[in-house]
Computed example of a mutant assay.
Amino acid sequence: MRSSQARVRVARVHADTGRTHRADTLAVEEPLEIRVNGTRLAVTMRTPVHDFSLAVGFALSEGIINSADDVFRVRYCQKDQGPKGLNPHTQAQPQDHPDGNSLTSDLAPPLGLGAFSGTESALQNTSDNVVDITLAPHVLPPTATVQRQLVVNSSCGLCGRQSLDEVHQNGCYPIDERSDFTLDELTVMGLPNQLSEDQKVFAKTGGLHGAGLYDVKTGKMLVVREDVGRHNAVDKVLGWALMEGLLPLSDKVLVTSSRASFELVQKAAMAGVPMLVAVSAPSSLAVELAKESDMTLVGFTRGHRCVIYAGEERIVPPATETDADVIDVPDDAANSL
């Protein structure tokens, strides 16, 4: 069973009380190789939970897939399996993978997302650091130019891109009139607090980024994911949404506990997210892409303040007494008061 946490023995040093020894909790970081049709696409450092959501969300962010119907199967690879993998169409139908890390709930989308393989009893014969996505027959595999044959650092989702022009692409789901909702300022400023309430591992380790999907209609967080990499946390959220058949996310807000970097805005745009709310600052390129995508981008969101960098029209001041409905009183009734 995989875990997002690890226990280590540490020495704590304080100027007044000296040195003490105790156990401490750390966030787990391990590499994940993502393959498409048996061929390596990328390697990323991640927290080893929700791997299938991460892989599918990564494929969505890269423009390889657009919906659950584009995926035939997602599975952990056999340890002795070559880089090309097995022909999925000659294998028995695999089972869902209950790995103890809430993957089971991830793997039951309403759309036709093939099958997810690797039963718990077969884990000894699989590598849970290698995930392979088998595309549906109608989907073209990625070309060599979009394959990133290197290790991607936890802090950067785009370091392996051959050029910035390749990333500056049109989203799979352009933001349209369905995203013309508004939120009041107080609601927006409170979103990071809602996110932090579900960051269970961060509360114990202080070492994970968080990302969540806020539903404008219900006023609730639909899903929260954590990872050592901020881009991985976002991919896990978007992968979950894809497998749940929720794309495009035209009435959702993506909330992140990190800065709003270019790659996070690009990932949100690929899923049709109209608003991105971040705890820290955006980059200049992130603001540029948000404006080009008609996305609302908010940074430095800290409970009592925020800064709107793009799409200001979606965020409105809270209602005041002067905005309340005024009850018309008849003249004769008014005179009797």
Rank of each mutant, 00 (worst) to 15 (best):
M1F: 12
Q5E: 15
V8N: 00
H21M: 12
R22C: 08
R22Q: 10
A27I: 01
E30A: 10
G38L: 04
T39R: 13
M45Q: 12
R46G: 09
H50Q: 07
S53D: 15
A55E: 05
V56K: 03
I64H: 09
S67P: 11
D70L: 07
D70R: 07
F72T: 02
F72K: 05
V74R: 02
D80C: 11
L86M: 11
L86R: 08
H89D: 08
H89L: 06
H89R: 09
Q91V: 02
P94K: 00
S102R: 06
T104H: 12
L113E: 15
G114M: 01
G114S: 04
T126E: 15
D128W: 14
T134D: 15
L135M: 05
P137H: 06
P137S: 09
L140E: 10
T143A: 10
T145V: 08
R148H: 10
Q149A: 08
L150W: 08
S154K: 15
C159W: 02
G160A: 07
E166I: 05
V167G: 15
C172R: 14
P174W: 07
D180T: 05
T187H: 01
P192V: 00
N193F: 13
K200A: 09
Y214I: 06
D227Y: 10
R230S: 15
H231N: 15
H231Y: 15
H231L: 06
A233M: 06
K236I: 02
V237N: 10
V237E: 13
G239T: 11
G239N: 10
L242N: 04
M243T: 12
L246A: 09
D251V: 13
V255D: 03
S261M: 03
S261G: 14
F262D: 06
Q266C: 09
Q266P: 02
A271L: 03
S280I: 00
P282F: 01
S283N: 02
L285K: 11
L285F: 11
A286Q: 05
E288K: 15
L289F: 13
K291F: 01
T296K: 04
G299L: 04
H304N: 11
G311T: 01
E312L: 04
P317R: 09
A319L: 13
T320R: 13
D328F: 11
D331S: 13
A333R: 10
A334I: 08
